[in-house]
């Protein structure tokens, strides 16, 4: 089976290992992963900042780049949400509306694909560990894929999940929000960090590297040594037997 991989720009620049981990998990499931080198950003920053024309330009580029009829796997709930649910809105009334709909119907978030399509079974080879979980808002609401992500985590027998008190609350990233409303964003991520600390977890996991960029930055700024990690990277680590 062939599948496209949409790496996302945050992963591309800051967390390429998480991106690779997702690719490896797909390959283990006998997927032939196609990574178009021409891919770039889904367009979300412009789309959410009041520049729909620029967002459309970038979106068209992705649609052209991922042209064949393969599923498109995205290791981010947020970018997947834009590609799957927002593109049809962005192109409503435009000549390519139908084409866009077909493109959007091929989008899968990574953990959703691993469970729904590949039906993966994971074998935990790691030492016991306590982790906590951050749900990105788009993964939680727009994509509703958190059940898949947690189903994967539950397959890891020696991983204890301690949930946040306010798991459903935003971390304050919001893309350009974090720099357009920096004070509010700072207050939000600070509360998120407090919540993480009170769990006593040794690691913070998520499906979204945008949130992790925000959270790890705030943890680091406060000199807190709690690593953050993309779920794919964590799974790969646990199932390889390395620790």
């Amino acid at each position: 089976m062939k599948a496209y991989y949409f790496g996302t720009c945050v992963i591309d620049a800051c967390f390429p290992q998480a991106g690779l981990a997702g690719i490896e998990l797909l390959q283990r499931g006998d997927v032939q992963v196609i990574f178009p080198q021409e891919q770039s950003c889904c367009g979300q920053p412009a789309y959410n900042s009041g520049f729909p024309d620029e967002a459309r330009k970038v979106a068209r580029h992705q649609i052209k780049t991922f042209a064949k009829d393969y599923p498109i796997v995205v290791p981010s709930g947020s970018c997947a949400g834009v590609l799957k649910h927002q593109y049809p809105r962005l192109f409503a009334g435009q000549p390519e509306e139908e084409e866009v709909r077909r493109f959007s119907s091929r989008i899968y978030e990574l953990s959703e694909f691993l469970i729904k399509v590949l039906n993966v079974r994971l074998e935990d080879r790691g030492e016991p560990i306590k982790v906590t979980w951050h749900s990105s808002c788009n993964a939680l609401r727009e994509m509703a894929i958190i059940p898949y992500a947690k189903a994967l985590l539950r397959q890891l027998e020696r991983v204890e999940l301690v949930e946040l008190q306010n798991e459903r609350e935003c971390c304050g990233f919001g893309g350009t929000f974090s720099v357009k409303q920096p004070a509010i964003s700072a207050a939000m991520v600070s509360d998120k960090v407090d919540d993480i600390v009170q769990t006593g977890a040794a690691r913070v996991l998520s499906t979204d590297c945008g949130c992790l960029l925000n959270i790890s930055g705030a943890l680091g700024y406060r000199d807190l040594k709690i690593p953050t990690q993309h779920l794919a990277e964590f799974i790969l680590e646990r199932t390889h037997g390395q620790n």
Binding site: C14, P16, F35, G217, A218, Y221
Partner: peptide, 13 residues
Amino acid sequence: VRTPPPFAPKTLH
């Protein structure tokens, strides 16, 4: 309130 983004030595591309 955050450390700078950790740009990786090599991109996923």
